[in-house]
Design a protein around this nucleic acid. Sequence first.
RNA 1: GGGCGCGUAGCUCAGCGGGAGAGCACUACGUUGACAUCGUAGGGGUCGCUGGUUCAAUCCCAGCCGCGCCCACCA
Length: 886
Amino acid sequence: MPVLEKTFQPAEVEKKHYERWESGGAFACGSQPDGDTYTIVIPPPNVTGSLHMGHALNNTLQDILIRYARMRGRDALWQPGMDHAGIATQMVVERQLADAGNMSRRDLGREAFIERVWAWKEESGGTITSQLRRLGASCDWSRECFTMDDGLSRAVLKVFVELYKKGLIYKDKRLVNWDPQLETAISDLEVEQRETQGKLWYFKYPVEGEEGVFLTVATTRPETMLGDTAVAVHPDDERHAHLIGKHCILPLVGRRIVIVGDDYADPEQGSGAVKITPAHDFNDFEVGRRHDLEMVNIFDTTGCINDNAPETYRGLDRFTARQAVVRDIEAAGLLEKIEDHVHTVPYGDRGGVPIEPYLTDQWFADAKELAKPAISAVEDGRTKFFPENWSKTYFEWMRNIQPWCISRQLWWGHQIPAWYGPDGTVFVELDEAAAQAAADAHYGKAVELVRDEDVLDTWFSSALWPFSTLGWPDKTPELARYYPTDVLVTGFDIIFFWVARMMMMGLHFMDEVPFHTVYVHALVRDERGQKMSKSKGNVIDPLDLIDQFGSDALRFTLSSLAAPGRDIRMSESRVEGSRNFATKLWNAARFCQINGCVSGGSFDPASPSQTVNRWIVGEVAKCERDVAQQLGAYRFNEASNTLYQFAWGTFCDWYLEFCKPLLNGDDAALKAETQATAGWVLDQILLMLHPFMPFVTEELWGALAEDRPADLIRSQWPSYPDGIVDENVAKELDWVVRLITGARSVRSEMNIPPAAKVPMILKGAGGRAASWLKTHEPLILRLARLDGIRMAEDIPQGSVQFVHDEATAALPIADVIDIGQEKQRLEKEIAKVDGEIKKLQKKLSNEQFLSKAPEAVVDEQRGRLAAEETARVKLDEALKRLSAVA
RNA sequence: GGGCGCGUAGCUCAGCGGGAGAGCACUACGUUGACAUCGUAGGGGUCGCUGGUUCAAUCCCAGCCGCGCCCACCA
């Protein structure tokens, strides 16, 4: 095998392995048919989307889970696909049309426009899937879906028809959130409230038949007065109650409008009297219903004043109309005052303009009814949230859920399967033929039908994703095998939009929860904690980071920051650190390669006889145990850090250093054992790290040994025989590590030059220590930079000393030691130890503690006190020895 | 108004009942044949404040002070 280059070059390696994995079918489900299934459906990105940091996090976590499951022998399916993203996609293509020749979609016509959208999708849609590939996402691309595919569209129609026939979908004329920019209804969830500095205008409405008497109303939206059909006052409000039942003459319009008494009027707010515009305000709509008021719609679909208003205002857009109304009211002497007023204004999250409550015919889903089983499923734990707390948010919303407006006045989307007869009777069927048949039967003759023009909310099809992607409504083998899915990985921002609705639809149509776990990850922010947004210019592009540091580095960074319930602040320095980790791993592999450390595939981790080899084998097993436990609990950050510490700290910093004297020694058998062990340990690291850093690990896996039985991606997650963890060996190596660290520390503090080799004397060490010392002398000498160690009871004058368990270690350096400095150092140590002793003594002399604390805790504290007291004695002796010299 | 969450080292964050941790940054030293994208050592913290529970509180509870997010409403 060629020797590895000095550094890891991610770009070519990533491309090479990804293409090989994909074309070789490594991502495909079904390759381990005997395993239990493990299924994740991807949150389908918008077909218009490109990979942002949230996607990167979301998909990294999914990929870790799916690769881990696959390695553990599960029949893993990561189902990919994209969302047709009705509004977003339509906007993209409309903009293209406008750029190309100032043509609108209406100029083009519906059919041609939709063709245009499909053409756009083929050409430039779905760049995100290639970006997901760069991230290393091991989706089963052979099963990629699109919400507008024939199959998924059939699912949408079937769901609509069935829900309609069960009365769970219905048509209703009511106020909806209307986006005048996009000219469509949107759902409650697509409205965002923005705090706005506005004004409060006070208008005087003349009371009919009472000269000089006015009722003052206050409004933030003067233009809506053109649609007023009442004024409400509180029945108990003494200022106004006597006017109830009388009328005002609506200025500028001249309409006679009634003064009603209604609790909705809050005497504390504004003037206490409130103008009522039932067609353009949700509260007013309710008041209107209670008092049977006329509903005057004054806007057209674009938010311009329509013919229901006086002629002078017709055609003005709502903001111009506002100015005109205020001007005219003032001219009429009816403007009482204007106040500054901060309030929130509802904006459409796509169109970006204030939405208008607007009275139209729309289709609604009975969310309240559909939510019931979805609520119970979480209540009784069939679906669990991680972190558990998100279930509260879910309940909060689900228990107060409103009817879901599912129709959109767009062209790009699933057209609603409803046909109208000549008298407006609606026929909801799977296709036109069935509707025609139903209509013919209904009318008793052949009639002409007109199809409903509206399409469905994009989230309607997304709600079916966990089963529509598996073939439903057909009874496919995949549906039977992979539904319900296992875990859904998502950001909290779409719990309402998506998770809740998948729960509703999944339970309704499959009778089973769509997933048993919802893992909710946080938001990725910039390094100062700001939400990333284009307008702030603080967006970090994950692809830039991949180019710069490699996909593995980005992935590892994200997973190591993915602590449950906390937002992630992304910073380049952190990615740099992860890149360094990949480099470290690379170089450790290089070292192993140069030194012939290859596991050979048949290594038995119970076989090593040499202590450091037995030790590292046990540490591997502990690491695996921890990682498995942490991943099982979705603690990605902890699992990442466990592996980081093990690979860098335990393996590179200690074990490989321990190996060096063994590999260069003349004991051939020992050398061979060490080579095999080191090679095996490296393999274990590659295996465990693979879900997190798939590229560098796969590359090393291939580079380190020929004739691997399988690519790393297809290899089995390790499991180890009981008994390879030997706690006595762990204690022994811990003793060695601390001895080396202690020596290094005093050397550094006493300014002994790193290159200078000095002897060490161990005083008061027991027999156990003697044997350990004998075993590990070569590596202690090497790592502590010593030229000899001996056990002796006398410590020469002018030694640097430190306490090591029951022994005192000394480095005699009479010629260079600064006695004063060493004295100071020891005194500082003593002060520290004294502090500990005092604390422990206090605790251990507390009767309450002794009687109430668990015995193990008391014993532990006693042990610590004994150790500190021993250290104290040794330090004292060391100090005396030093003083005797001084 | 309702709900959720966060204040731990200079920065970003883990830990969440019994000895304060990591990464980055910082300081000193170092070309020890894997690695300077590195090594060794080190400095740095009344764990927001005040009470309470407990033998024991950074960790549990309450209140307060700061900060953030979600939902609803706003004449």
